[in-house]
Design a protein around this nucleic acid. Structure first.
Lengths: 135, 135
DNA sequence: TATTGTTATACTCTATAACTATA
DNA sequence: TATAGTTATAGAGTATAACAATA
């Protein structure tokens, strides 16, 4: 029952996020890629592929789309002429900041009504789920 | 933070389920469709499309794959010669039973170690998420 | 030889639009 | 006219394999 509810809750949240991202011209996969760039920029496409756990070929398409939309820019790697430097543009930084803010607001709406004890217990429960898989 | 953990937990669970489904020759989308058939069989493709909230065209492909793999069978609708009756095969029933059992076992592994208080708090947190979106 | 990123190709999931057979 | 399901077409996300440029 709790498993069903967990999956259902995420489905609803993901739907909501997908709608919000569409307003910025982003999909889930592209937002995740943009997020990955933001966390490590500047980085090579190979590094981004490893971070996202997808193939380099997949990253080519994702970066193509993000570059086309103006969120990231490709440039020369200073030391390795095979590699491509990917960095955030100003538009990309703005979009990431907006995503962070939206995530915070959503979290407040979703969990703001819980007591500190409940929130702590729920967090522990979710942590134990993650532990089960990473252990 | 809790939002991150919720999304992360579901990501891990989904990964795990995807691997398990692959052993049965099923993808997430096909398993969901099979599940939809199991809950209502026999039913028309139109009814399945409504239940899954996808287009009739999408259902054609999903049922094609499930039929090809022997999980469901198409048949004539008794009253409407336009419509197609979809029903589970014996293999389909077996697969659904196995999926149910696997879900129960996973839930036990994930949540069996929690105290009743933690489990109750987690359930309330998840319920409040669902309420936020359905209200 | 090994690595970076690309082109070529393919499969899955999804959608809209046009069409056929039936209601 | 309206509905059920299909063919035609398209976009997105993913993968493997072969290749060019560079290390």
């Amino acid at each position: 029952m709790t498993l069903d509810m967990l999956l259902r809750a995420t489905e609803l949240i993901t739907e909501d996020m997908t709608t919000a991202l569409r307003a910025d011209g982003l999909t889930q996969a592209r937002a995740k890629a943009l997020w990955g760039v933001a966390a490590r920029a500047p980085l090579t496409q190979r590094e981004l592929a490893d971070a996202l756990e997808v193939t380099p070929r997949n990253v080519t398409t994702l970066v193509d789309a993000l570059e086309e939309a103006g969120f990231v820019a490709r440039g020369s790697h200073p030391d390795d002429r095979r590699a491509i430097w990917v960095d955030l543009t100003k538009k990309g930084r703005t979009a990431v900041a907006r995503m962070e803010k939206a995530a915070d607001q959503l979290a407040e709406q979703l969990f703001g009504g819980l007591s500190p004890e409940e929130l702590a217990a729920a967090t522990r429960a979710l942590a134990s789920v993650a532990e089960h898989f990473t252990a």
